[in-house]
């Protein structure tokens, strides 16, 4: 029996149901196994969470620390420490953070910026 004869057994709604099943499978695969895109930027000062910024729109946030003000910048899908009063500027030099779980830590000013997705990659982290 040829493929064409098998296809004749399908009715219009059958195509829709099969395509919907394939789409549902792909969607499930992507959302459960696919890359975990970050959804929020969590800003902490002195160990306390001071802000949770959504990563779907641009924004800026200023945090006060012992040395001065750290400027955080958020754009869709990414975030960075734009400027920091710390002496070595490690957290600023890290540039844009784009991956879920990524963190920039401005230790002298006691400020940290971390991206979070739907899943926690680690139970806890210590530095």
């Amino acid at each position: 029996m040829h493929l064409r004869q098998w296809l004749l057994l399908l009715r219009p709604g059958d195509y829709a149901v099969v395509l919907a099943a394939i789409a549902a499978t792909l969607a499930a695969g992507l959302s459960l196994w696919g890359p975990d895109l970050p959804t929020t930027a969590v800003i902490r000062a002195a160990g306390q969470t001071v802000a949770s910024l959504p990563l779907d729109r641009p924004g800026v946030f200023d945090v006060k620390g012992p040395l001065g003000t750290t400027h955080i910048e958020v754009q869709p899908g990414r975030a960075r420490v734009a400027s920091d009063p710390g002496p070595r500027q490690y957290c600023v030099k890290q540039g844009w953070l784009t991956r879920s779980g990524a963190a920039a830590i401005c230790a002298p000013n006691e400020v940290s910026l971390q991206l979070q997705g739907r899943r926690e990659a680690y139970d806890s982290m210590s530095y």
Binding site: L9, L10, G13, V17
Partner: peptide, 15 residues
């Protein structure tokens, strides 16, 4: 009870 003209055995089987 889906209309048979549109949904055949394949639809029922997948569902």
């Amino acid at each position: 009870h889906l209309p048979r003209r549109w949904f055949g055995p394949v639809s029922l089987s997948v569902l």
